[in-house]
Design a binder for these strands. Structure first.
Ligand SMILES: [Zn+2]
Ligand SMILES: [Zn+2]
Ligand SMILES: [Zn+2]
Ligand SMILES: [Zn+2]
Lengths: 156, 156
DNA sequence: AGCCTGTTGCGAATGCGTCTCAAGAGCATT
DNA sequence: AATGCTCTTGAGACGCATTCGCAACAGGCT
């Protein structure tokens, strides 16, 4: 849909992770940079093989694993039991998943982010990471909706 | 910590799911009703065996699976690759996970719930379910805390 | 009590991901 | 360009949570 934040060069990404630049890893890095969705390991492998057919499953998993550990890649588990990836150099956002189509939309809410920190703080914690996912379906044309919940975003 | 909402009888739980009441399933249902934490399948099995040692792994997984499908049980995946369970008849809440100790605290924020619905609506969706998890660590005694938290949305 | 059908335990099988290890290839140096 | 140290690779074995297949078993209704 959009790629407002083109990530750095694939080789740089690898070097940032302290990795040697190999043909296979270049293919994988390129896939991640070009990805406009949230591919899982299997998909990353398949796409990487279009660049370099010699990429093995082990290398795909290993590279994704290292990049994640180094914080250059974020992981998600929208559907249970498959991990999905996304470059970490993008601005923070959370996800809205269309349960019918599987489509994933990204959003940010400064208010929610703030409330989260506030809650953590109230318990004496500070947030290390968080996960916010809205599983939704297209709303029925909601005529009867009463739009009288005025400015309720007020953070206290 | 608290069990303010004692779930219905174990047998009822099973019948609500359209299941035959068997000794093994009673043991499992009882475990779920008594649980004050978020046990995984392995833990549920172990506890169920204290009631009825004949409960098998397959039955534990099968029962948990059915109860989840029927909506009587909620599932979580705080740590990747292990599913945890919790009765669905409790009031809604989200989770704060202490990444050091693994301790899980529950919280609710009417504001966040409202903002979530608002966001979904803005995209033309309605929320079917959602997941909000805060992975935290104990906050350092924050003397230097500057309470001037103006809109700085910067976060990691 | 007796039948019908859902359930059970066991072990085998699945699926995603990780590990082992010998062969191969970065890359800094000569 | 050749050397060599070390990291990386592919293939397949392995780990682990969860699911399946099936014959024996047991609810629940008459
Ligand atoms: Zn967020
Ligand atoms: Zn995203
Ligand atoms: Zn919530
Ligand atoms: Zn909970």
């Amino acid at each position: 849909m959009n790629k407002p934040f083109q990530s750095s060069d694939g080789d740089d990404l690898l070097r940032d992770a302290g990795l040697r630049v190999t043909r296979q890893r270049q293919a994988i890095a390129q896939v991640l940079i070009e990805a406009e969705d949230h591919p899982n390991a299997e998909q990353v492998l398949a796409r990487a093989r279009e660049h370099d057919e010699s990429v093995s499953q082990a290398t795909a998993y290993r590279t994704l694993s290292v990049l994640s550990e180094k914080g250059l890649l974020h992981t998600h588990t929208f559907d249970k039991n498959v991990m999905r990836f996304e470059l970490a150099d993008r601005p923070h956002h959370d996800h809205l998943i269309d349960v019918e189509t599987g489509e994933i939309r990204e959003f940010v809410s400064a208010e929610i982010e703030r409330l989260q920190r506030k809650i953590a703080k109230a318990y004496g914690y500070e947030i290390v990471a968080h996960r916010l996912e809205l599983f939704c379906r297209k709303a029925a044309p909601d005529e009867t909706e009463e739009r009288q919940d005025t400015a309720d975003l007020s953070e206290s």
